[in-house]
Amino acid sequence: MSDITVDSREETPHAHHHHPFLQHHFEDLGQQHEASTLGMWVFVAQEILFFGGIFAAYAIYRTMYPEAWSAGAHHQNWFIGAVNTAVLIGSSLTMALAVWAAQTSRRMLTVWMLLATLILGSIFVGVKGYEYYDHIHHGLLPGQSFTYVHAENPALTPGIQLFMVFYFSMTGLHALHMIVGAGLLLWFMYRAWRGDFGPEYYAPVEIMGLYWHFVDIVWIFLFPLLYLSH
């Protein structure tokens, strides 16, 4: 039966040595690499829609309450935000270098660059945490503990609370992505140290890079929307 409908593949001697990280269901590492990369791109597309939903809600309320939004943005320290943006862009650079190092078999450089990315990412999250602390201290955490009242125009207060809801949701979701990324970085540092990666097999570091750059780009949108939109 199978002879009729299926031409058995010519006995191509499997030229490539069986790489230890080639999964059984792929024909070769090239296919595996392409599949992982495409997988991450599709995942990023999904992430764009995920953030897109909350960006849309943000945009609608911003049009409805422009004054409150402007007042809310005034409560953000643009300087800290700008420094943090720089830190994050720096981490994208080290991430890109890590991918290059992995691809060119620079084992320890890969580890160091991943570590640098991790440290910069942690600084970002730490600074974010400090900002959160500061907002909470000023009674700007939405919900029960929202004690802030806008001095000049108390009627803006509910709108400012709404702004802070979006501030915390959007930056919180972003920070969550950073933390997941940090966990992955730790794991890849170990794998890089173990010497897993080389010119044939560096897809995990590459797709880690894609993810990290995506998270970075989300922040590039968040920063002006939340800090600079006076």
Partner: peptide, 21 residues
């Protein structure tokens, strides 16, 4: 589906905190 996910997140935030979304 991700749009539903974020919508449900907003719904859960609103139900828990009552912040006016």
């Amino acid at each position: 589906t991700p749009v539903l996910a974020i919508t449900l997140v907003l719904l859960m935030v609103e139900r828990t905190l009552g912040v006016g979304i």
